[in-house]
Design a protein around this nucleic acid. Structure first.
Lengths: 155, 155
DNA sequence: ACAGAATCCGGCTTACAAACCAACTCACTT
DNA sequence: AAGTGAGTTGGTTTGTAAGCCGGATTCTGT
């Protein structure tokens, strides 16, 4: 499940997950997904439940004395919410208000869905476009030195 | 499959790939190809699905907290689209509008196809010619220090 | 506690775009 | 020169998504 998709919220605030994403998420079994904050950018990350199991277990197992690790745990685990899809693959945007504010999508009609393989991301569409036009390799300044324990992790 | 080919983009945004490219991509298994942005230049890259599997898995597994890695993931994974061959085995690619804009091929009749062995690239024909003659491109490589994890990768 | 109101949620419909298919042309081969 | 395969184009079909509607459920105020 890759690629960008602009998605509209209906009047009820529901978000339809495009069919090609749905199929790849293996949502047949339980229509359950987990949505949480991106620890670095103003966006949200959405995982199929199986993928979430994997990530959360790994995060939990990290030793919690390192302040960077604690911050990651707080951000990712502490802001994770389960969502369910209806039979048409619609997700009611009952994303908690603080997550909506965090990702700057409150009251936005158009939202960007970006498939990244094992997950997808939700962006304010303007922010996503700015990322795209800002130059493919433009860097953000990462002012912390990552501890070894999370060097091998991908979220 | 190497070398340059001039090809036309039809009114529906479709691009017919000459048979010799198709034959060399080893598409026997799944008639599936992936088209995505080139992270460094205003051009597009087309991979056979087997090659794509390899690249995407590797990219997904990289340290997702490094901003350069994330930019690469966004550009390559977040803009990847699947295409299929038609029933007669012809490669008629529908290029998404945003990719047409990125590669500056929108409303261009003549497009450059450049075979690069296990993949091929799609260029605005003027940009390709300028590349050949050393002229300026609208997008230049950004001077960043690549993390070790992607130094050994080829896209 | 009950009635009215507001919100929630599933189903249905319609419009549209993408995938499919068929027909025609061109070029190359034998 | 005729036949075959490749390239081109446009029409048709089908699947998807977005809006709409109405029943259900929860909430609120009296």
């Amino acid at each position: 499940m890759y690629g960008f998709n602009a998605v509209t919220l209906d009047k009820k605030g529901r978000l339809l997950i495009p069919a090609r994403y749905r199929d790849d998420l293996q949502l047949q079994k339980h229509n359950k997904i987990v949505i949480t904050k991106d620890p670095q950018y103003s966006s949200l990350k959405v995982y199929a439940s199986s993928e979430w199991e994997h990530i959360s277990k790994k995060l939990e197992s990290l030793q919690g004395l390192d302040p960077i690790v604690r911050n990651l745990q707080w951000t990712i685990l502490g802001n994770a919410y389960e969502c369910h899809l209806d039979v048409y693959g619609r997700m009611l945007l009952r994303i908690p208000t603080d997550l909506q504010i965090y990702s700057e999508i409150q009251n936005q009609k158009q939202i960007a869905l970006v498939g990244m393989g094992n997950k997808f991301e939700i962006w304010n569409i303007k922010n996503w476009e700015m990322r795209q036009t800002g130059g493919p390799l433009s860097t953000e300044i990462l002012d912390v030195v990552l501890p070894e324990s999370i060097k091998s992790m991908s979220f």
